[in-house]
Design a protein around this nucleic acid. Structure first.
Lengths: 162, 162
DNA sequence: TATTGTTATACTCTATAACTATA
DNA sequence: TATAGTTATAGAGTATAACAATA
């Protein structure tokens, strides 16, 4: 018996009253939903990221925006929002925070007065170097935990759904 | 050319001024992070779930709690929270909503006066039957979109991380 | 008319802390 | 002292709507 899925292992006449410690319940139909397992793993991955990047106070969404700006300097907020699936109102606040920290600059577009072109500042590039270093360690740990084979396999499977 | 990953396809002298429509930027280092793809897919899956269950106003977290109660009637909030990784303060509010809808009942525990045992009501069982029906359609569509082979593969890979 | 970026509101979810009543 | 459940607060993320400036 490896795992107890349904058991009514009541704490009634049990030896100790250590209560509900370590008891795991059955998942029922939840066992059949990919979304559930996807969510659980995603939360674990993000929590590790947030913890590892905690010292620099960088959240996953901020990190993703910095990487996109680095890879596509001079593009508009609209383009970045569309790429990452971040709603423009949310992106505005997110970018304000990055600008407050002097990591990015928003310059008026020459071709469209409504647009603002996004760039990393020198400070931003320096900060991002550190951030990427920590992020790589995070990813390496994740690959270790999942097994490098599964890590690659999952990446390849999921990448085609962006 | 299927997808443009990095291109500097500026809208300067382009034929139309249809702007940023359909332009996708490169992901840069983001391409190497499993968490990113995990998150994107999870969001898509949940959005489809929420849309399909929208008529019944059931969110994924509520659904998961109903299924756990169904599979483990009479258990405490603490046990359910631990199983699903839902913090107890959050679970309290979530259960209050389900109780308000008469889908669950919380009865005082005989063995521990602090505890409340959770059960589905008759209404709750009826509602859950409908909900499960919609949830199965959601899962079937997901399997279709991912391909049944990949769907199974992902389930098997992710299940072992709960 | 449509789009860019901004502000504002509301709701969900997560993370805490503090409190009560029991154990 | 530790646990079960509750209340409250703060922050992130998501979903809207409305607005000004520009296309």
């Amino acid at each position: 018996m490896k795992r107890r899925r349904t058991g009514a292992s009541a704490s009634k006449s049990g030896g100790r009253t250590t209560a509900t410690q370590g008891e795991k319940l059955g998942l029922g139909q939840l066992e059949r939903h990919l979304g559930y397992f996807l969510r659980r793993l995603q939360i674990r991955v993000f929590q590790d990221f947030i913890q590892k990047l905690g010292a620099l106070k960088v959240r996953p969404a901020q990190y993703s925006v910095l990487l996109i700006i680095e890879a596509n300097p001079g593009r508009s907020q609209a383009a970045i929002g569309q790429t990452l699936g971040i709603e423009r109102a949310r992106l505005t606040r997110l970018l304000q925070e990055l600008e407050r920290r002097k990591w990015i600059a928003r310059v008026a577009s020459a071709s469209d007065a409504r647009s603002r072109c996004l760039h990393l500042t020198a400070d931003g590039e320096k900060a991002l170097a550190k951030i990427k270093d920590l992020a790589e360690r995070h990813e390496a740990l994740l690959a270790d935990r999942l097994g490098h084979k599964l890590h690659t396999q999952l990446m390849d499977s999921l990448r085609d759904f962006g």
